[in-house]
Design a protein around this nucleic acid. Sequence first.
DNA 1: CGGAGACTTGAAAAGGTTTTCAGGGAGACT
DNA 2: AGTCTCCCTGAAAACCTTTTCAAGTCTCCG
Lengths: 338, 338
Amino acid sequence: MSITIHDVAAHAGVSIATVSRVLNGTSPVSEAKRRSVLEAVDTLGYRPNPAARSLLKKRTGGLGVLLPYVSGEFFAELLNGLDRAAQNHAYFLVVSTSHRRPTEFKAAMRAMDRRVDGLVIMAPELDAHDAESILRSETPVAFINTYLDGLTPNGCVVEVLNFENFAGSYALTQHLLETGHRRIALIRGPRGAGDARERARGYRTAMAEAGLLDADALEFEGDYTQAAGYAAASRILETTPRPTAIMAPNGYCAMGVLSALHGAGVDVPGAMAVTGFDGITSARYTVPPLTTVRAPMRDLGLQAIDRLVTILHGAPRAQALRQSELPVSLEIRGSTGG
Amino acid sequence: MSITIHDVAAHAGVSIATVSRVLNGTSPVSEAKRRSVLEAVDTLGYRPNPAARSLLKKRTGGLGVLLPYVSGEFFAELLNGLDRAAQNHAYFLVVSTSHRRPTEFKAAMRAMDRRVDGLVIMAPELDAHDAESILRSETPVAFINTYLDGLTPNGCVVEVLNFENFAGSYALTQHLLETGHRRIALIRGPRGAGDARERARGYRTAMAEAGLLDADALEFEGDYTQAAGYAAASRILETTPRPTAIMAPNGYCAMGVLSALHGAGVDVPGAMAVTGFDGITSARYTVPPLTTVRAPMRDLGLQAIDRLVTILHGAPRAQALRQSELPVSLEIRGSTGG
DNA sequence: CGGAGACTTGAAAAGGTTTTCAGGGAGACT
DNA sequence: AGTCTCCCTGAAAACCTTTTCAAGTCTCCG
């Protein structure tokens, strides 16, 4: 049985209303009572019961995070940003992963219902239609790394935040073209993932503009894992004429590529250039160091939370849907001859 | 204003008590009422209010996770295990990071107080004394990756779970000795971290047993980052006589070492063998692939949650403190000539 | 046919807080 | 001195559920 507000009130010789007022600063209290309440709180070690509080105020002080999965540095860095921002605003974070399909999302959102005041959702494989079928509650939601083209603003989704995936990939392809490459292979990200689709589009656009129309033949299946990079690189090496550059959809995949090339005795960047996308720390330490687009994963988390908190603190919400793209930058290193 | 149990009761023509009984299966209800309650719940889309529920039952359905920081694959994999186990048992996860010092832990625990039913804490830099000063509540706590020698069982700490850090490091050193190395350099982990201390101890013990007593001179400062590995490797290369092997305290640090050696044109494993510790996936894809101790990070999370849930489901708790070490295994790859 | 038990059911209390409402006291102004 | 305000304070309601307690119905047995 823990200390309640009644114990504090009794100890301080005041009513529970006064204790509440002192603790929340919600209306003025005489200095004398104020002091004796604070003293009682201190002596007794009183802590308000969060359940009782949120039952009444209909706010929990928590923010939910829904992720498709968690792996590697990308997510670690993202969580870093999320956690930092949440702590700054005195919110706690409820994290749930392993959600890729709409039904799984629905279940997770039911579980979070009224346990959190807002939601950050990363769902690269979700589209606008799925999203609308899921979003029924009035909890504000910030989507990150999710493409929801054609979403009808419904006052619930308050932010859709992505990296400049198209622009980054376009710039990366340009870089390879400028260094003289013509046969540039692309390893695609997971099917259905919007970010991967945008990255592929950047590649295709740059290739087309350079008059290299056989791009299709140079695209290979893959995903965001090292194993996929390894496998794709092995297939690419068997292609004739052999490409002179490989663009991986992210950093981990690029590591798999580098590993396969090393195993096959192919010199990087001499015989094959390699690029990544995301800018995980490890990219600086591969052999050779990886040319990559750097995407600010931490900022992604920070901004999503900040936006959510702004809304929760009462910012107008009706026409509040905002779509933004976080700027990325090119980091040229040894894997493309830098 | 959302749907309450009263709305359901009214719609179904029963009392709220009956609704509660149907939903919780807590006592028998006639089939007719049962059906009409379920139908009402369905039509109205009723969801019990978690705050009201936990106010009464004094259980929240949540588990807290306190981490010193989040970075890289180690933590991603750990979170994977934690989340998976939590979902299995229908608990949600409240995650908080950036806690290294006792005061920060105390603050985080206050924030979690009565918001979760149990706590998983990873605090490699905490000792038994700190821990005892922090643990005041009756919430059960499972420590992972934390060394609390001499902790007096207080019914609150129910598990202390570590890897076989000593044994793993000992085996790794043995492996290098057996491959003919004599001048083996160790990069130490962060000062004050228990796991790093154990790994260093494993190294020293193996070296001493091999009659190589000048070990001290071959230990170098470091931590768990790639940058530290890079820096330490650079210093090691200037040592005369130059060591022929470098043991890094974990995988990321080893990546930094490999990168530095590559930059300096030192052949691995020809001129220098390199080892890691933890078995992140990336270790398979470094150039060359890394010999390492594989530690089951995912299992660490799984077991901590499982244990907590067992206690919460009513397992006896008084003398429940359990100290365990998760077995590790040696994975020999190219970086030591495998 | 009467009574005892077994089942079902509803009313009401409890859980810990915030907030409204009304009352009481003190100070200020006429 | 009387009255009007304003400030401070406490009682009580409200938030939404679970659970206890007691009562009611029904069945079955003697």
